[in-house]
Amino acid sequence: MNRMIRVLVAKPGLDGHDRGAKVIARALRDAGMEVIYTGLHQTPEQIVDAALSEDVDVLAISILSGAHPTLVPRIMELLRGNELEDMLVLLGGIIPEEDVPAMMDAGVRQVFGPGTDTQDIVEYIRQNKGMQ
């Protein structure tokens, strides 16, 4: 049996809406991936610890609250501190277009906004995981 693609779907911060995260989790499962979902209101520390413990290939972060300018750099900093800078980090939710360059600079590899076809995310992960 080969290594399955493992993805952590993370919901940091205070927003309480995880419909989108669940839709993504399900799409990735249906594409044959193993998806770890840890629920709402996760701190950056919890997310990075889960990513490390579960040895995931991909970290998919969903933020709808507008707190991404503080949360995302913090998560990236913790990933680097744990020598996890190679992880494929994706961001989804409500991310204003003008914020996208800053997110990419922080180390996010791709931002998927509302209306993204889940199949595009599946394809993106298949093509980019393990290519860091």
């Binding site: 249906d30 594409a31 979902y37």
Partner: peptide
């Protein structure tokens, strides 16, 4: 069917 899984015990 797909071999995929949602692992939710961490919640």
């Amino acid at each position: 069917f797909t071999g995929g899984a949602i692992l939710g015990d961490r919640i």
